[in-house]
Write a protein that binds this DNA or RNA. Structure first.
Lengths: 158, 158
DNA sequence: AATAAAATTGAACTCAGTACAAAATTGAAT
DNA sequence: ATTCAATTTTGTACTGAGTTCAATTTTATT
């Protein structure tokens, strides 16, 4: 499944239940209905959602769903390396199904979070010799291309 | 004052009230008692403190201090570029008086946050053309040198 | 000293996330 | 298939960082 992730992301493809089950099993997670639904949501909605986002999206489909279950599942996914968390100076934590090293850009105007590629050379820091680096986050903040263009167009109209 | 920051940090030097006043004025901030005390705390305790840390440290000195004032002051400092905020997957935001580009390493064992140098080449990302980058955070997580050595020593004792 | 503007305070509130015990579901053994 | 223990899910109450806002205090200026 891993090789197809990017392609599916772009193509907005959907995942079969068997694929999802195998994915969880490979990560040592027993595939319950809730876990499969949350995994599916994360794979098909790569918007770095919060727990609340996930809860709201699934509550119609699973009317008995509790927020605690969403948190439990996300904690489990985190522990088993299925997701990473994103801490973007917001009240809420965000979750990212893409666990490969990459950067995040948060637009301060529209709020959207973009991914961008990053070389792993950042990790080569002499000052951290003897330190064990388990993960690294690169978070940029500013104004995205779309919002920059909107601002530019508004100024021209004046 | 800026050139002396690092030296003072290492030497645990203290700041004179006049220095602190000038520093705030240069940043367009009127120097009230609380603001001076918080600035002094931040300059003399480079531990990336939370608002709570600052409040607890100053409440003895300023018995009428309210937490709202600490938050108000930190928000003002942030707006005027005196501090940066640090979002390290914790509940609380941390504040950093060092606003120059540098990385942070959080030890998952002892909780200490270390600074490390970073090249600004990370910012050269083709995919972010047309984006305005206002700030960037590089946060690493893992086990610090001291904790690694403690773990190693404990294993040798067995 | 009077007064207006700015800073500070304190109490009530919000809301993301947690704790935990009860209820529901699952899966293995018979 | 049925039982039963283990696991998962749920709902309620709670925690605690941060916010809101009106009242009070302080400060600067005349």
């Amino acid at each position: 499944m891993q090789q197809n992730n990017l392609k599916k992301e772009v193509m907005k493809m959907t995942y079969k239940v068997e694929e999802l089950k195998d994915y969880l099993k490979k990560h040592g997670i027993r595939p319950s209905t809730i876990r499969l639904k949350i995994l599916q949501y994360l794979l098909e909605n790569r918007i770095h959602p919060t727990a609340e986002d996930i809860y709201k999206s699934l509550i119609n489909d699973i009317p008995t769903l509790s927020k605690t279950s969403v948190y439990n599942t996300l904690d489990l996914f985190l522990e088993k390396g299925v997701v990473n968390t994103l801490s973007l100076k917001e009240k809420e934590l965000r979750y990212d199904i893409n666990t490969y090293l990459h950067g995040h850009f948060k637009c301060e105007v529209c709020g959207k979070v973009y991914d961008f590629p990053v070389t792993d050379k950042i990790l080569e820091v002499n000052e951290l010799e003897g330190f064990t680096i388990k993960s690294i986050d690169i978070n940029a903040y500013g104004i995205c291309k779309k919002c920059n263009e909107k601002i530019k167009n508004n100024k021209e109209e004046e």
